[in-house]
Amino acid sequence: MTKLISFDIDGTLEVGDPPGCITLDMVRAAKASGCIIGSCSDRTVSNQQRIWETAGIDMAFTVLKHQLDTVKERFPAADYYHIGDTDLDKQYAERNGFHFLLPDVEVVQLWEGGD
């Protein structure tokens, strides 16, 4: 089974407010590698979807931050990761059995390293 990667937006992605260090090209690369990817943010679901539509990236899920648990229910995967910039991201990730990673260029190893 593959990896599932959840991306926070604000403070994490380059299109966030504030901008983070994770570029949209990195997100595209994660998807191209076969990972199940989506976003998990306090932004409304419709706003998240608009971001991905504009970017031309087809996300498997767009959920609110406190609904990360629903992602695990919907998508079987070998490992679950959430990348976010706050303690709250860490709290929700760990509460729901996700590995938590701060936004850092090193996270590309998640998808460049293969399964």
């Binding site: 409304t44 419709s46 608009r50 609110l64 931050k65 406190h66 609904q67």
Partner: peptide, 23 residues
């Protein structure tokens, strides 16, 4: 800054900051 209007559903499903205070 492109902040979109919110709906009743957006409001009612939003995260609690201090229950029942929502974001």
């Amino acid at each position: 800054h492109g902040v979109e209007p919110i709906t009743v559903e957006d409001y009612k499903t939003s995260r609690y900051i201090l229950n029942p205070l929502r974001i």
